[in-house]
Amino acid sequence: MTGTAAPIIDIRDLTVTFIGGRKPVHAVNGVTLAIQPAEVLALLGESGSGKSVTLRSLLGLHPPGRTSIGGSIQVAGKDVMALSGRALADFRGKTVSMIFQEPLLALDPVYTVGAQIAETIQRHEAVSRVKARARALALLQKVRIPSPERRLDAFPHEMSGGMRQRAMIALALACNPQILLADEPTTALDATVQIQILLLLRELQRELGLTVILVTHDIGVAVEVADRVAVMYAGRIVETGPVREIIRNPRHPYTQGLLASRAHGAMTGSRLDAIPGSPPDLADLPPGCSFAPRCKHAKATCVETAPEIRSVTADHWMRCMLDAEAAE
């Protein structure tokens, strides 16, 4: 999928630091990512690895007073960091839209689902109320909500979890965005509903040619929908490559640990192979490789200097120095 075409999303050396608290928290520490049009990228990592923070930066959603952001973000030819006020609001939902982890919390409880979708359409396009409502209905049909006419006037609390997430997807697609950001879209759902939502996302992505960034902590979800995976740890991308390549040939010790800790494929009765220790304190990051304290292959050099990004194959990159020594 990594062609030579111009990327639709180009993130260079992104850093996000929250400065509200007692100590600055370095949530994202130099993320560089290029995503091609119609590509589906899964941003994989555990809680606090900076994946959601990276995603929100793409929409400029961090409160300016309490965050300091570095690097550059180009999305569909626009410099997101230079946007503000009205221009930023015009960009959000129109070029790039977002779906959230818990649709019950992400939908306004006192507005009907139809009103919320129509509001988005009327915000970005000069259409009448009636027409916006008709389009909202078409969107609900598109995401295959049962009896969509009735759901148009339903409140979020009157719908099931899966239906709410479908409504959220309809809302996100209301203004035909080029890019869809999905922040753990299936985490709050039952396993059976999860797979339906993922299939729907994949189908809509193909049909509409959407570029998707999907944030998840679940490798299974990434395998299901993504073309490419980027593994994040402590605010950095530690390994990226095509999804099959990453599953079959993980090179970074953290990715290897993640794959080994899955229940899937493990022998019954055997202990799951968990990664020892816990992620580093983002307010107090170690100078060298941030995974070194938990890495079973770590050497003295790992603790001292941060590893550079290196190529494994043409489209498989990672950030670890051990593999280089082992390979040579």
């Binding site: 929409l59 959603l61 839209s97 977002m98 959230f100 509001e119 809302l171 209301a174």
Partner: peptide, 13 residues
């Protein structure tokens, strides 16, 4: 609440 962030994300001023 989350929906305030979601409202900003869909482009409301």
């Amino acid at each position: 609440q989350d929906f305030i962030l979601a409202l900003a994300a869909k482009g409301l001023t």
